[in-house]
Structures are given as C-alpha cells and as structure tokens.
C-alpha cells in the first residue's frame, strides 16, 4: 500500500462513513508537524469529494493525491503550516 510518498502517519478510517473520515483526518492533521504527510485510507466513496472539499477549504493543508483502488480510497494530505 505504501507508495512513492514518504508517509509520516497512516489513518485508517475503513468502514467509517461521513463525517468520520473528515473529522478524523482533521484530528490527525492537528497532531502532526508542518511538512508531515498523512495517508488516509477509507472505504467511503464519498471521501473522494469530501477530502477534496475539506482540503480546499482548510488553510495549512494540501491534498497531494487521491488513489482509488479496490473499494479503497487513499488520500495523501500534507500539513503545510
């Protein structure tokens, strides 16, 4: 699962649905340092759009990539400040 990204931490929100992937991502990001990269692994297909919207509307985070696999949606969120 670990890809070309240098992931600092992985958040597993498999089996959880809205709003959990977003709320847990926010909590995990808060615990990280600037420059760290969070990998979020979800089964909620809505997380593709939701994480995108959240990252666009939140300062201090950057969505680097979203990968759609076999019923798995993986998001790479970088803490920028």
């Amino acid at each position: 699962m670990s890809s070309e990204y240098d992931v600092t931490e992985t958040l597993d929100v498999k089996g959880q649905s809205c709003p959990m992937p977003i709320v847990k991502t926010k909590q995990a990001i808060d615990d990280l340092e600037s420059g760290d990269l969070l990998e979020v692994v979800a089964t909620d297909s809505g997380s593709m759009s939701d994480i995108q919207g959240w990252a666009a509307g939140t300062s201090g985070v950057e969505l680097l990539d979203q990968v759609e696999g076999d019923d798995l949606y993986t998001h790479y969120v970088k803490k920028t400040e």
């Binding site: 809205c18 709003p19 709320v23």
Partner: peptide, 11 residues
C-alpha cells in the same frame, strides 16, 4: 451533528 462536526473540521 454531522454538519456541525464537519464544519468544525474545516476550522
């Protein structure tokens, strides 16, 4: 509850 907690996640 869903909208409130999500909005809080947006800061």
């Amino acid at each position: 509850l869903i909208l409130g907690s999500t909005a809080a996640a947006f800061g």
